[in-house]
Amino acid sequence: MIEIKNLNKKFNNNSVLKNLNINIEKGESAVVIGQSGTGKSVMLKCLLGLIKPDSGMIKINNVSILDKNLSYSNKNRIKIGMLFQGGALFDSLPVWKNISFISLQGKVSEKECKINALMTLEKVGLKSNISDLYPSELSGGMQKRVALARAIFSEPDIILFDEPTTGLDPITADVINNLILEKVKDLGATALTITHDMASARTIASKVYMLHDGAIIWGDDVSELEKTDNKFILQFTRGESNGPISHRSN
């Protein structure tokens, strides 16, 4: 379960998050949609402890992950997996070491790590013969799959996806969407995805939220996406330039 309450974040004088509130139930797959620059990535980075919010509260499984000074404090060691937009695979390490990176830093033997990495590789539909290749030797779709394998390797309670289908062709994007859906269900994890890709949102989401100007302005079941008369949702899903959402030059 993810609970974000009254989250605020400013960069210089620019308020990016303005009293952001969102509740994602355990096992739910939530998708946050919204225009570029509305604060989606900042919200995700606050969840990961990569950005310190100015005020507010973040709870995961009913435990606050921010201490009194709003610094990240994951004392309960809640496992969070993250799929970055560009994959963020370590280019100095082969595929299997990327996947099992977290175990390699522990006391698990390299042999065992490799076996586990190969098993995870299989779960995302890749063959073991690519395990010794480096990320630069893989296609974009394969890199995304390896990144997904790394995100689910430690069987996390929470999985975050940042624009999982960006830069992929529609067929590969659909494969990734279905893989995400399948793996989130298999693990019983709570998932939070941010995306612009409505096809992706419709496939992955059980609930959809719209972030506009630093706050959630709409949230409902994915089926309501087609029924709602919310002008922001209508403009965004139809991809129209005219409407309440003004075009941003950034």
Partner: peptide, 17 residues
């Protein structure tokens, strides 16, 4: 620098490193 702009340093942090 390349690791920073490709979010590899952020990825390290999310992997408890």
């Amino acid at each position: 620098g390349t690791m920073k702009v490709t979010e590899q340093i952020d990825a390290l942090r999310t992997l408890s490193t």
